[in-house]
Amino acid sequence: MIAAPVGLSPGGYVPKAYAERTAPKTPVAEFEAAKSGDVWQIRLRWACAEPHRELGDDVDRFIDAAAVLAPTVADAPMMTMGAPGKALEGALWRADRTGLIGVRAEGLGTVERGDAPEGWGAKAEWKAGRWSLDFELPGWSVLDARRRLAFAIWQGAEGGRGGLKSVSPGWIEIGT
């Protein structure tokens, strides 16, 4: 994994205030992707020394989260979260929620959150310093068509949110 480049983050603050955040907070993540019937089963594992599962009423606490994304068109750029007319879509898991959140973006700062497609879900467990996250994503036609994925992981204990995340270094081809 690499640190998402903060220099790309929209606005004048994040690129300057976090200019030194160049090392990923999640350097390594393991993943497996398999298809069973029409269900994509995607497993993601990463080290997390201090899980952040809820905010409570704290205002300076951030939540662990992870997203799996696929391009809606073949040449959608991954590092900029897509581009106008070249959307990415996928699912966002947050440690403080039960269901998944559906996401779609056409560029940095444009992520729209909504209901995840019917039947999409994930099981997450934190044990011995690691998160294990199993997505079950039935009928994800974009992934059927494009066969490439990207991941993002936010470590709450490290102030992860927005562009302060670790991402796969590019699209990961998952074969046919």
Partner: peptide, 9 residues
Amino acid sequence: ACLDACPRS
């Protein structure tokens, strides 16, 4: 500064 800081406009 708040406006400038928001990556989501």
